[in-house]
Design a protein around this nucleic acid. Structure first.
Length: 427
RNA sequence: GGAGGGAUGGCCGAGCGGACGAAGGCGACAGUCUUGAAAACUGUUGAGCCCCAUCGGGGUUCCGUGGGUUCGAAUCCCACUCCCUCCGCCA
């Protein structure tokens, strides 16, 4: 949700921000509706004030005077009820228009429509040259006994896999290493709930927009009928980590408040039928370490850069060539004001593909979740929230397998992970 | 799953139709006292929205959530949510 003062003080700037995203929004209509709802609310509150005064008077009166005052107040009560209903209708109408509006993009966000319009801002690492036919992660994984796609499909359907053997050890090595690195950076490790109420998904901006990407959990009765349980499987730990401090006023001295959440992530991937059908690049379930930060507004851009720097250092330490892209306005998502994706090099696809993502959602989520902070004894103000991928385990495993493959079919484990795996090579 | 109890301000806790944004205590902050500190004493101390305005002032809403009764609801009624205790089941 946006700060309403934007509408009142700078409607033209607001309209421009929607245009930046390629949206046409009738801002003057919003301004007019906002004005009429305030007028109506003020009128209702005046009636209420009169009613409150009358009530105090009634308490003091006795006998016939009291009866007369009550009769008069009954009339006031009727008027107030009507005025209140009118104000509520206008509020609801305004909110229906206001709440779905996306966060205004930062000035540095490139204008564009699809991910093809994203702008590469840096490229790091040297692309590996193999003197032998390059295998992709599916061939490598099945050959090394790390991955079983067919049986994943047998048990759970397409886009599911079994991860096995040393790949499992590699996953936990990645997670433990990443959490250790993040603790050095001041993050508190968290294992959050992965089932959340819709409130948390609304608050983070996934609902109502991305409803079709989220699994809803139900309960089946004896006849096999499924009833909704009003819980949803999260697609990222961002959701519970944002909800963690909902409805709180944080002490400014604690900020930035950094959390590193490890969770399984569930995504329906609806509308991606043909895309990335091979292997575990795009699956319904994967594990991820996610960074989340609560931050004062004046420091959030600095924090955004800091999170990106951490992501880069992790990927660089794993020896994966990568590039950083500034995600264009059309590809941003409602809640982000700016987003960096890191695309790692995947030799099996001969392409850079998304490996991590890092967003500054400014006060968009904070306003929806009522996450505020206070400087000393000052007034509460909206915090900013940011999130970024530390390690998306599935895709990182793919990158490690494909970049680390050797002529003999084995795969070298990055040095930083070896203390955690206890082995140097998958073979 | 069965039986009971509860939800009030940063925390504890009173209130059970009008004097209640809410006693009292704790905590926090400021002051007095003190060489300094502690103690003691005095004062201040919730959030949202709207209006006027220069610091500031006024109105309104909020006692788990949503409805209802009433001139008037923290207080009465209904529904829901969450928490706790005991029993059963269970990783």
């Amino acid at each position: 949700m946006l700060d309403i003062t934007l509408l009142r003080t700078d409607p033209d700037g607001l309209a421009a921000s929607f245009a930046h995203r390629g949206l046409t929004i009738d801002v003057p209509a919003l301004v007019a509706l906002d004005e009429s709802r305030r007028r109506t609310r003020a009128a209702a509150e005046e009636l209420r004030a009169a009613q409150n005064r009358a009530g105090k008077e009634i308490a003091r009166l006795q006998g016939a005077d009291k009866q007369a005052a009550i009769a008069a107040a009954a009339d006031l009560a009727e008027q107030y009820k009507a005025a209140l209903a009118e104000a509520d209708v206008l509020d609801a109408r305004f909110e229906a228009m206001w709440v779905p509006l996306p966060n205004p993009p930062h000035a540095s966000v490139p204008k564009g429509v699809t991910d093809a319009d994203n702008v590469t801002i840096k490229t790091r690492g040297t692309l590996p040259s193999f003197g032998f036919p390059v295998l992709d992660h599916v061939d490598l994984g099945e050959r090394l006994g790390l991955l079983d796609m067919d049986r994943g499909a047998k048990v759970s359907g397409s886009r599911f896999a079994f991860l096995k053997g040393r790949a499992v050890m590699l996953e936990f090595a990645l997670v433990q290493w990443a959490l250790g690195r993040l603790m050095e950076e001041g993050f508190t490790p968290v294992v959050p709930p992965v089932l959340v109420r819709d409130q948390a998904l609304f608050g983070t901006g996934f609902f109502p927009g991305a409803r079709d990407q989220v699994y809803a959990v139900g309960v089946s009765d004896a006849k096999g009928n499924i009833t909704a349980d009003d819980l949803y499987l999260v697609g990222t730990a961002e959701v519970p980590l944002a909800g963690l401090h909902a409805d709180e006023i944080l002490d400014a001295a604690m900020l930035p408040l950094r959390y590193a959440g490890f969770s399984t992530c569930f995504r329906r991937e609806s509308g991606t039928y043909g895309k990335d059908a091979r292997g575990i690049f795009r699956v319904h379930q994967f594990d991820k370490v996610e960074m989340f930060s609560y931050c004062p507004p004046e420091r959030s851009w600095e924090e955004h850069d800091a999170l990106l720097a951490i992501e880069e250092s992790l990927i660089a330490a794993l020896g994966i060539p990568y590039r950083v892209v500034n995600v264009c306005s059309g590809d941003l998502g409602d809640s982000a004001a700016k987003k960096y994706d890191i695309e790692g090099w995947f030799p099996g696809q001969n392409a850079y593909r998304e490996l991590t993502s890092c967003s500054n959602t400014t006060d968009y989520q904070a306003r929806r979740l009522r996450i505020r902070y206070r400087e000393g004894s000052g007034d509460p103000a909206m915090a900013h929230t940011l999130n970024g991928t530390a390690v998306a385990v599935g895709r990182t495993l793919i990158a490690l397998l494909e970049n680390g493959q050797q002529a003999d079919g084995s795969v070298i484990v990055p040095e930083v992970l070896q203390p955690y795996t206890g082995f140097e090579r998958l073979s």
